[in-house]
Amino acid sequence: MTPFTSITSVAAALPEANIDTDKILAAQYLKTISRAGLGSKLFSSMRYDAEGAERPGFILNRDGWRGAGILIALENFGCGSSREHAPWALLDFGIRVIVAPSFADIFYNNCFNNGILPIILDRAQVDQLIVDSRELTSATLSIDLPSQTVTRANGVAWTFDIDPDRKQALLEGRDDIAAALAQDEAITRWEEESALIAPAIAGIGAV
């Protein structure tokens, strides 16, 4: 996984609750067998019209925000389908941080597994960041994971909470699978003991 430490970038706001993963990456783009190249399909229905031309009003189509590395969103961002193609598309576009009052659970996990930092702030703070993001003079944010701070263009810094283990994993770019495989003894012991208690959970067998 790509490590994450800090970023200073323009932030783009999508001030809408319940943005689902179908909207982040539509189903017709899920037919890939690769993780790469989905950035151009990100938010396709909001970003492009039916003919494939850019909608000039959409924030990521506006000069100054095209290279945004930080996204500001509202409640329940990433709800719906579990598709990891959504964070792959965000990452491919260049988004490394998403700030919102809340996230859907599966999407939240998927972000961490791809080196994207999802930050939960109070709604009032998110509203302030949305206002900041409207003018390029105030749209730049600095996010620092070691100190868990979001610093606005005017120098005001806010702290955010994060699970300490998640934080460590992001800073290291940790391979979670290697970490779990190191627990092989405990996993094997569980398998042996459970086989004695509950025969019903044995293997699936031939279908």
Partner: peptide
Amino acid sequence: HAVASAGGDNSLLYIDRHLVNEVTSPQ
């Protein structure tokens, strides 16, 4: 199903059944 601690409040949970489809598995 908690096999081991996985840092903080997190657990390594054993999975009895894993269903796999064509869309979310190639990668």
